[in-house]
Write a protein that binds this DNA or RNA. Sequence first.
DNA 1: AGCTATTTGTCCGTATGTATT
DNA 2: GAATACATACGGACAAATAGC
Lengths: 249, 249
Amino acid sequence: MANFKEVNKENSIFLYEQIKLGIRDMIEREEIKKGDRLPIEKELCDQFNASRITVRRAVKELESEGIIEVIHGKGTFVKGLRRPIHILDLKGFTEGLSSSENHFTKEVIRKEIITADEFLMEKFNRDSPFEVVKLVRVIKDDHDVFSVDFAYLPYDVYPNILPKIEDNVSTFRIIHDDYGVKFKNAKKDIEVSLPTMEISKLFDISNSDPVIKVNKVINDNNDIPVHYSEYYLLGSRVSFYIDVDVEDE
Amino acid sequence: MANFKEVNKENSIFLYEQIKLGIRDMIEREEIKKGDRLPIEKELCDQFNASRITVRRAVKELESEGIIEVIHGKGTFVKGLRRPIHILDLKGFTEGLSSSENHFTKEVIRKEIITADEFLMEKFNRDSPFEVVKLVRVIKDDHDVFSVDFAYLPYDVYPNILPKIEDNVSTFRIIHDDYGVKFKNAKKDIEVSLPTMEISKLFDISNSDPVIKVNKVINDNNDIPVHYSEYYLLGSRVSFYIDVDVEDE
DNA sequence: AGCTATTTGTCCGTATGTATT
DNA sequence: GAATACATACGGACAAATAGC
């Protein structure tokens, strides 16, 4: 039987917070794994020595965090913990994720050459139209869509790149190895919103599941933009972290 | 009358995307201001020379971005653009926001001394209980709650700090000026989720409005944690940005 | 309480272009 | 090439919510 952290009634923390910690702890230690069903509410009540109301509150809050999913009539299932992403690991996409526990697959769902519109002209800091390779890719984590990526590469910087782009290859490696382009700096914008229809379909989520949209422009050694991308992450599946040195005189 | 960007039918971009840009542009240039009502759907159709379905799609997507709000029977209203926050401006709360256009009010809604539980003991890197000042504050932006902040300050580091904490004062200034504590570095964790009941009440939002939760530990010059806070931001009201230097050998 | 006008919400059918089979 | 499906886009009709009288 599942071995939950013991709950202490004398503790000042609310009981439902303690239950949340207990369940989260189980998932962190992989005593319950992704896809597994949690014990039914009755069992949770017994294990935590709490009422059904209290257990349900804990479960509901964990669901709103996105780490478990309650399916009416079926049970409560573990969706998995958030993947920590370092904000400064601005390389890719999969690159920012630790490669050891990497059961990701990268899938190219569209690649085409388009003419830059005003929006892209501004992003690439150019004032006349030019050709751009547009890529749409999804990254899956065990069959679940983890990220959707719209990337734009100026064709004059990367001639004949199209055939090189395949499933499960890193565009950054191609850019670096085949074209000798070196990245100097990047500017990122991160915002949170509800998904558009297009995005909710690609992720196969409901339109009330928050998504994180990251816009990124990468400049080369001459401060010329050589990569623009917009990628989406499932809000419930990631967390960002960063260490900051404070200049406090 | 509102002067929208012209829409070009020959353009390759979808009509609804062009309408989105047109409306967003109006808001960015402050031709329609926060709280104002947008032209009714019929007028938008005329101005963009599009059908109601197309206009409605544009409006709906802008609503899911959070910059406008559609109210049945009343109209569509501008909620305002996102406030850009620099990820490294990890000081406060209001500190990170440009002070020029700052109609923020900071309100202390709870201040008390509690005994640290296991969770706080871990955050402050101590192994025995100690007293902590717990603060709950809200920041309002023109009467709308913009941020909710739970801050924890070890009482032994800041003796008798409680009376100093008032509405619209910066705790960072107190810490720095009155206690001489200098910040060396901070660790931030950012995640996105749907609000718990408590948070949705404080923000006065529905439980399907995404919120951003930031956990921050600040260390002093001796690498001792001297400030821990959890604060929430409305996902639809902020964007984060950062410039990164890439070490690309 | 009506009543009416305004405005958004939902649904219908249709046409067109683009993929996919 | 034909058949199918899908997304964009148009026009119309009615329902539902809001506000003012």
